[in-house]
Design a protein around this nucleic acid. Structure first.
Lengths: 369, 369
DNA sequence: TCAGACAATGAATCTAAGG
DNA sequence: TCCTTAGATTCATTGTCTG
């Protein structure tokens, strides 16, 4: 695996590598405010009891490894508090965090996130299209897991590629319920005996959506419960850097072999739909300066009921109001706000055109030069 | 509203009425272990700040009621602890509880349920088919709410009408995600001005599923945050008793008027598919004893490839195997197990019929006499 | 009467840059 | 840090109006 370092002040980050040992201890070594996203799939406090699952004491192929035994909620909360505290310290002020869990642990996770000042943005339901049925008919089929997406604090900025997720969802905004299949088939990593290498391997499709939606290329993603490295594999493919932490040597080995085989997508494939908000701001006055509109020229409102005249300083005036294109539009419509760019139109050769077309021309010229 | 009382020892229950005042104080007056189910839709503590306008400049009518406002998480947790403690005391040992919330409060709810010793059975996602969109494009559409279903303690029995929910779900196991529309149209209660009578009225379909799946006719359902009485309306329609508690006089008034108009379904409509587990076990030999099958009679396998003969002791025999209907079926199919009731068929008047039909006849006779 | 346009609305933690 | 201003942003369903 190629390991690069990003220097940040005196410290540098162990990028694109899998650190061994306890995640709290390892995170302590990382500098403050150094990663853009944390994705955490902590061990579930499943409290499975073998005798409940298998009366005949046969081997339970479920989540009952040593690392998943916590003797009480208190212990689990202490553990959760410790790793979340470090994750929060390491996270940049405008970074994001995702945690995933089931009903066994997700309420502890969510409450502790809130207690530490993280600001929940959404809870997201991963609706499994092919869950394991409830064989005994004593409960509902447990067909989902819950993710929580949060920013570092209330009011903090955060990365959200709204348009990209909307595009992924066939043009309507992405909802908080995601229907994705569980990890099976070739994607499911096996050991030399053909047994699954990790009991709770997450599907890459899930990480793809998380990373596409809430990071940008070049961002650093920290996964303190790396397991067999789904986060790292998808991060690498998508041109993001990752830092993994994993206690179990065997999982690290599998993860490193897996990630070594991943190729990063071409950079143009990593370009996503951007929002208009990301485009450079253009002052209306620039259109007048450039002669695209003449002072004194008449603009017509959407619908054609109102008219206003352009002034040399880039404001509009009419009998009822004067001011910016937005202010005059809002005033005429009796609305609290108005987007003047789409509201006002001008006429050229008998055709009525929104002034936003001129803004697009300016932006195109800015991009060239 | 007809109010009846169920006496339980010295105390009696204010059935099918809406109590006024604080839910903690009112629950304190109820006897220990007296209700079968608690359904609770507590305030969500939304923490909304300013106004929100839609893109068309209309204002979103938000939940800004005083009852939803709390100073801090600590205050909210104290409140949650208090009402859950009373709910738990009032609940029968084999009773169940449902709570509903959003990401604002549901993690606090779930954690406190666990802290008090409730045993979570499922978390259920209500996926809204028509949620309000995210108007500013800053987050995912908040398209679901979360319900938590729990028993009073680990190992406690609880009511779960598995077959009824399966039937409701077109013959496949009910999953932990329920797609239901929000409460609109005629179902949405309006005040005299045509405004919604309650900002967060739940759809009856949601309560229908809860009550069908986790109570039996005649059970007592307590709703400490009664609002406009969806729980009571569905409970009454389904032949369950309810106890409502509501602080706001106007909500109580609306709820009482609403419930007065509800008619209870006919009792045969309330008979639900019962779990096969709950049905009396019928030994195959009984069919022979009763003369429904003759010893020596030939049974044919599903698909017709195999035959076996009935023996007088209620076992089957063929050249390859002998034993119970299940054992022989499994042996012939090379399968680890086999449901002999659906596997084996007999012929009467040229028609091939599964032996399960005979079992059903036996059960019907047992039910009658 | 019916089709189609138009309006209303739902538990919402809903902006960002620049002065 | 506060205040002002630019200007970006919606889905499914039901009810009402119009031609």
């Amino acid at each position: 695996m190629t390991t690069k370092s990003k220097s940040r002040g005196a410290a540098s980050l162990p990028l694109n590598s899998v650190l061994s040992g306890d995640c709290v201890a390892q995170m302590r070594k990382l500098p403050d405010e150094s990663v853009d996203l944390v994705f955490a799939d902590p061990p579930y406090n499943l409290q499975l009891k073998g005798e409940l699952m298998r009366p005949d004491n046969s081997r339970v192929d479920a989540v009952d490894d040593d690392w998943d035994s916590f003797d009480s909620f208190k212990t689990y909360d202490t553990f959760t508090r410790a790793w979340l505290k470090q994750a929060r310290r390491v996270l940049k002020p405008h970074g994001g965090i995702w945690v995933i869990g089931s009903y066994h642990n997700v309420f502890r996770l969510g409450a502790e996130l809130q207690n530490q000042g993280f600001w929940i943005l959404n809870d997201v339901v991963w609706r499994k299209s092919n869950p394991m049925p409830n064989f005994r008919g004593k409960r509902l089929t447990n067909a989902h897991e819950t993710l929580i997406w949060a920013s570092k604090s209330e009011g903090a900025k955060y990365t959200f590629n709204y348009e990209a997720l909307k595009a992924l969802n066939e043009g309507v905004q992405m909802r908080s319920d995601w229907v994705l299949p569980i990890c099976t088939g070739n994607e499911r990593l096996k050991d030399e005996n053909g047994q699954k290498a990790h009991p709770t391997q997450k599907p890459e499709s899930l990480l793809h959506r998380v990373i596409l939606g809430t990071t940008n290329p070049g961002d650093v993603i920290l996964d303190p419960f790396f397991g067999t490295g789904t986060t790292g594999a998808v991060a690498k493919a998508m041109g993001r850097d990752f830092i993994g932490i994993e206690r179990e040597a065997e999982y690290r080995r599998v993860a490193e072999a897996r990630i070594a085989q991943v190729r990063t997508y071409d950079s143009d494939a990593l370009q996503v739909s951007t929002s208009k908000r990301a485009e450079p701001r253009v002052a209306f006055g620039v259109l007048v300066e450039r002669g695209m509109l003449r002072p004194g020229e008449v603009l017509h409102s959407l619908g054609g009921r109102h008219k206003a005249r352009v002034r040399a300083d880039g404001t509009l005036v009419c009998s009822e109001a004067k001011g910016s294109i937005h202010q005059v539009g809002a005033q005429l419509e009796g609305a609290p706000s108005c987007n003047g760019w789409t509201y006002w139109h001008f006429k050229r050769d008998g055709v009525t055109v929104p002034i936003d077309l001129l803004r697009q021309q300016v932006r195109a010229e800015m991009a060239e030069g």
